[in-house]
């Protein structure tokens, strides 16, 4: 299996601050489902930021889709970013747009708005239980509803990589199971899924490999079978 994500000795600092990620080395194969777990402040969100091309590493090498991200032309980055769906820890819905407009936004940015796509968006919002709240502004939605809009927005373009930061943090168990089920369905059709979470419960219920992070360092890369010996990029 080819790696879709490869980190080698990656360090990240914000501005002049200390390194919040240090010597991070791991790889994730195309089509994998991986949790990222670690205490608060461990650097999970920062790692996801690198994965979603929100930042470039301060040192080391990050390879996405087989390419060193530092060698990618600036003009090619937006196209790559659209192949990665992101659910932010704080949702980041656009307050001026309705729920459905927020989900249509990635299609708009990709220049592929169409009737057929809008029907697809409606279907997706129905499916996450927001059929009746499509035209509501985010400020009138509950935290869990906002989170579901954020997830719908992240998956609408059928991304090759789906990155989710605490995606079940604000929803009840039933909805949480539904969302994880959605992730697994995406994973089943080939999407590489990476989920940062604190939740032991979530990991126990839907078990997948877990990358452990602590104080900015990887304490366990999590690929039980091929991962450890594959660290140097010599997977079968």
């Amino acid at each position: 299996m080819e790696p879709i994500i490869e980190f080698s000795n990656v360090g990240l600092r914000y501005g002049m601050g200390p390194e919040v990620l240090q010597d991070v080395t791991f790889r994730i194969d195309r089509g994998a489902f991986r949790y990222i777990k670690g205490p608060s402040g461990a650097g999970k969100s920062s790692l996801l930021r690198l994965l979603s091309l929100g930042r470039l590493p301060s040192r080391g090498e990050v390879r996405l889709f087989g390419t060193d991200v530092r060698r990618i032309r600036r003009s090619a980055l937006p196209g790559l970013r659209r192949r990665i769906g992101v659910v932010f820890q704080d949702f980041r819905l656009i307050g001026h747009l309705t729920a459905i407009e927020n989900v249509l936004l990635p299609l708009h940015l990709a220049g592929i708005e169409s009737h057929r796509n809008e029907a697809h968006v409606r279907e997706l919002l129905e499916w996450v239980g927001l059929g009746k709240r499509m035209d509501a502004k985010p400020s009138t939605l509950s935290g869990g509803e906002q989170q579901r809009v954020a997830i719908a927005r992240a998956v609408i373009l059928n991304p090759e990589i789906l990155v989710a930061d605490e995606p079940t943090g604000s929803v009840d168990d039933a909805i949480g199971r539904r969302l994880v089920h959605l992730f697994e369905q995406m994973n089943a059709i080939g999407t590489t899924v990476i989920v940062a979470t604190h939740s032991e419960d979530l990991i126990r219920r839907t078990p997948h490999d877990v990358l452990m992070l602590d104080h900015g360092r990887v304490t366990d890369p999590g690929a039980r079978v091929a991962g450890l010996e594959g660290l140097e990029g010599s997977a079968p």
Binding site: P78, G79, L80, R81, R82, V86, I94, L105, L109
Partner: peptide
Amino acid sequence: LLHVMGAED
């Protein structure tokens, strides 16, 4: 946000 979502400059 738009930037991370892949909006062109």
